[in-house]
Design a protein around this nucleic acid. Structure first.
Lengths: 247, 247
DNA sequence: TAGTGGTCTAGACCACCGG
DNA sequence: CGGTGGTCTAGACCACTAA
């Protein structure tokens, strides 16, 4: 079952073997795997190698260990709700589509109550750098985004800031290293202005993506609100036990 | 720096130490970690223990190894787009909220073109089990769902099928073990009927979650379409480097 | 050639669980 | 108490990289 002279690592062979047993139902959810010692003896490999193999399964959530009892097969938990924003965005470069980010506006603005709240600030005079952009794919507007960062430098707006229009890029262009990001997606209806920019009727359903960039101290240093056309974007999730090398 | 007599595992102490160095900027993105041998000598622990510590960082995406060169600090990739469906759903049991799933309809139906397509079927006579439910939280309707599974058993609809109204639960109640699930989220506007069930005006923005359950052979065995109230649900994502024990 | 990470071994002791 | 997984060691050989 395991080829000790193969170039494929032993732990990898064993992991694949166990995964197959689980996927075919030879090992059913709730059942225990053979103990590490048993597996080591059966395949004539060291226990550490067995542990590395089982570690792979644990990392993938297919089994869970209980100290003093054994390692058990989990049920596929299909109630996971981890989604990826399916869009042209990720495939833009891969697909070779014609896309560009068009700059609509860029200016320095004073604080306002909403920004004060979003950035968790006390004073009222913090200047912000404001950008608004549209993502055009094949000439069609798909995303309308308004971005705000704290304006620390007193230098003029630079070319480089416009070249990387992503919010993390914008923040780091200002010398602040982004360390974390929080995003919230909601549904909404396009306003008149948004509809005009995105070339869709007002009241059309859209995704609303609010993004907050945090620095190492977990303080907000960037914030943006993006409107995604509902007719062009969707979120997808795929969960379960399957062999990545097969699918 | 590392307490060899602590109850805390050495690999865990070392992992935490390295994480801190990265988060504080002592080790910057692109820089190499000390080699495994160096770390082992410096802290007077075995190389295998060092490797286990670094393995944690690799799993978290904070560093990446290159054979023959070293292990390097990655940049925080904040363009990740992995969202969790934030809802009362997960907190229902934890929060002790009053919730229940109300069964609106349950019957056996014949195939139709849409189901034929979704289940990738040839013949036209496959019977389906159809359920429609509403999730009520604190008496308020939040989710309206229509579920379909292939009706294999000729037995009547059982109590147990109604007790676990989740789609995977429904499928497994029919003797088919669900192994994978595909979900797609879109935005939409509530229809007249949906608005009535959810107690919102028609044309309100809603999340539309389409779910397909697959068996071990990756064939569809369950399908559902759920309407989530847009004013009560949102998706959230949090990416970056932070210590899970601090946040 | 020297240094790196990748794999593997054959032990050891421990904490935990069940009978 | 014996069996389980959790940690740790001190070696070994390998493939890969760079000088």
């Amino acid at each position: 079952m395991i080829d000790k002279f193969s170039v494929i690592p032993l732990y990898y062979q064993l992991a694949k073997l166990l995964k197959n047993q689980i996927r075919t139902g030879e090992l059913k959810p709730g059942e225990a795997l053979p103990s590490e010692t048993e597996l080591a003896e059966k395949f004539e490999i060291s226990r550490m190698t067995v542990r590395k193999a089982i570690g792979e399964l644990i990392a993938q959530g297919m089994v869970y260990p209980i100290q003093g009892k054994g390692t058990f097969v989990s049920k596929p938990k299909l109630d996971n709700v981890v989604f990826e924003l399916d869009s042209y965005n990720w495939q833009l470069n891969e697909r070779g589509l014609d896309w560009k980010t068009k700059l609509l506006d860029a200016k320095i603005i004073r604080s306002n109550p909403e920004l004060k709240r979003k950035f968790d600030l006390q004073d009222d005079n913090t200047p912000f750098l404001y950008f608004s952009t549209v993502l055009l794919v094949e000439g069609e507007p798909l995303v309308y985004e308004k971005k705000y960062t704290i304006y620390t430098k007193s230098s003029p707006i630079l070319e480089t800031e416009i070249k990387d229009p992503s919010l993390p890029g914008l923040v780091s262009a200002h010398g602040v290293e982004p360390m974390a990001a929080k995003k919230v997606i909601q549904v909404s209806l396009a306003t008149e202005a948004e509809g005009e920019v995105l070339n869709i009727p007002p009241e059309s359903p859209v995704f609303l993506l609010e993004q907050t960039i945090l620095n190492a101290e977990m303080r907000p240093v960037g914030w943006s609100k993006a409107v995604y056309r509902g007719d062009r974007y969707q979120l997808t999730a795929f969960d379960g036990w399957y062999d990545e090398n097969e699918v």
